[in-house]
Amino acid sequence: MDKVKNLLEITFFARGGQGAKTAAEILAQGAVSEGKFVQAFPSFGPERSGAPIQTFLRVSNREVRTHEPVLNPDVVVVLDDTLLKTENITRNLKKDAILIVNSVKTAEELSRQLKFFGKIHAVDADGISLKIIGQLRPNTVILGKIIRIARVAKLESIQKEFRKIFAKKLGKEICARNMEAIKKAYDNP
């Protein structure tokens, strides 16, 4: 969190249907349960599945009043690494910003590809979700990584919010596997 601004700003790059909006909302609710102020909002293009979208998240110790999109994020999360070729991910990315990418590539490979030499964290969220959940749920896995790296909220708060939203819809077993997947990404920084 930026000490001066008292604010943490995250931008998600994803494709419609990948669940970036849901991920941002779970993070927001987790932070709210810990007494933080938040704002989570999507920026849709043509509003269709598969199209590139951005979602923004602000977490602060004071009321968030602005409604402008996040311009200079502290953290950028990329849920689909094919977007690295088409979207200008590193635009406005501060030198001390953190990049979290769902990719099978290593951080070094991504750094060379993007010519971004700040902190990069690569996580194979697709692979982990297929292995543990048995479904393609990169947005679930990436939650663990984001809270470990950016400290948006505690692991327990995020798991609690996830259960609140999905327990009924997914059933006990699948929900438990999602919890495990979040923890797996959390435990492997």
Binding site: Q29, F37, V38, Q39, A40, F41, P42, E63, H67
Partner: peptide, 11 residues
């Protein structure tokens, strides 16, 4: 405001 407020999670 559509999206700015309708789709924005806020306290």
């Amino acid at each position: 405001d559509g999206f700015n407020t309708s789709h924005s999670v806020e306290n």
